[in-house]
């Protein structure tokens, strides 16, 4: 053991080093979140937290569970593929508590125009009108039932009036209607 005689300072230094390493391990254990590294270089629990956020739009399947009559009427018309909440807004709260949370009736003047105002940027086969020219200020729902917008379509059966089958839009009166582009 002769060679260790003067090595005390080395052991003290090594001891300090080991102690510092242990402190590092303890601090690291506290500071690094438990799920860090579960799937990769991030906190795995984040995925669970994000997945647990509340839903605002219930989804059309939920609407269809109760409003079967409206959905059946809608499925007969041009708006069959427009989901309920696309016009009526986020209604998960209404689905959870139908009695106390009731949806507001959408303003058709704003709602219809958003999609159907004529613009060269829209697809050519999409029904478009110049709202002022088309109705002259008459509310859209005077002629069009939003759930089955073809004028004169039977809301119960979806049967089209003879004129409507001729074109993409109801046969327009040339004086009042802008017509479909």
């Amino acid at each position: 053991m002769k060679f260790l005689k003067d090595a005390g300072h080395l052991f003290r230094f090594a001891g300090l080093f080991v102690l510092a390493f242990l402190i590092f391990l303890v601090v690291r254990g506290y500071v690094v979140p438990k799920t860090f590294g579960e799937y990769g270089h991030y906190r795995g629990a984040t995925i669970v937290e994000i997945a647990a956020r509340p839903v605002k739009y219930a989804g059309h399947q939920v609407c269809e569970n109760c409003h079967t009559d409206v959905v059946a009427a809608k499925n007969l018309g041009q708006h069959a593929h427009v989901n309920c909440e696309a016009c009526h807004g986020p209604l998960a709260n209404h689905a959870n508590d139908p009695a106390s949370v009731t949806p507001a009736l959408p303003d058709t003047a704003v709602l219809c125009a958003r999609c159907h105002t004529a613009s060269a940027a829209k697809p050519k086969n999409f029904s478009q009108v110049d709202p002022a020219d088309h109705s002259g200020g008459v509310p859209c729902q005077t002629c069009h039932n939003p759930h089955n917008p073809t004028p004169g379509a039977d809301p119960a059966t979806g049967a089209m009036p003879p004129a409507a089958t001729a074109g993409t839009h109801a046969a327009p009166d040339p004086k009042t209607a802008g017509g479909a582009k």
Partner: peptide, 23 residues
């Protein structure tokens, strides 16, 4: 965008796709 992760993990579609009137 989270691709509506809270919706797609519950079997719903995203809010934008749910509300797109033309698909």
């Amino acid at each position: 965008c989270t691709l509506c992760y809270h919706r797609i993990t519950r079997g719903l579609t995203t809010a934008c796709a749910e509300n797109c009137p033309t698909g």
